[in-house]
Amino acid sequence: MRLNLKIWRQANQTASGRLVDYVAEAISPDMSFLEMLDVVNEGLIKKGEDAIAFDSDCREGICGACSLVVNGTAHGPDRGTTVCQLHMRRFKDGDTITVEPWRAKAFPVVKDLIVDRSAFDRIITAGGYISINAGGAPDGNAIPIAKSVVETAMDSAACIGCGACVAACKNASAHLFMSAKISHLALLPQGKVERRARVVAMINQADGEGFGSCSNEGECEAVCPKEIPISNIARMTREYFRAMLVRA
């Protein structure tokens, strides 16, 4: 296959960027999208030109590093799929593909297609944990937890922290990401102890980072590679309500 690529190139955080045209040749339909970019990069490197920078690591949809907006959709056209698991058979010979980075004030572009997502780490740092130290934990079976509760918690805990939800949301809101962690922890008995302080601290942090609010559009859910539903956002609101009304 031969493809026309329009790829966002930006030298660093302060430089202004633009879309640059490339042609990807001899692309096999079995390649993943990132392998297609590897091929383009290999060509650039051999010519001594600066390779296109993009994040990736596991290349199997779990680390959350890869982060490309492909033809206007975060992680590309396949549902429940990270861009590292998107395959070129999804495209036709001669297609034009536009590739952009996540765009949000809280995710400044570092270079080309790489953005700085440390804001997510700071949201977790603000309270996305259970405060226990190593040692002294009670037996794992000391507190039985209903299977259905654990399964729901696991649905939320599956978040890979990729940031596609922010990228897709018209408000660049981090509500889905945050609510996934808040739900995961608030559903489990171990996490209930700190639920009030946690939800307030995390939301304040996200607001301070410059993420937007949520207008309930659900684009985030549609692009989320782990298909995390926005019912988590509703749960976060309830958690927040509770935190405001009931003092710990």
Binding site: V69, T73, E100, A104, K170, F211, E217, G218, A222
Partner: peptide, 18 residues
């Protein structure tokens, strides 16, 4: 919250409520 807009942006499809 999004100072630089996308050059290309598409509706993400179901289950989006957009």
């Amino acid at each position: 919250a999004r100072p630089v807009k996308y050059v290309k942006k598409k509706w993400a499809g179901t289950p989006s409520r957009k």
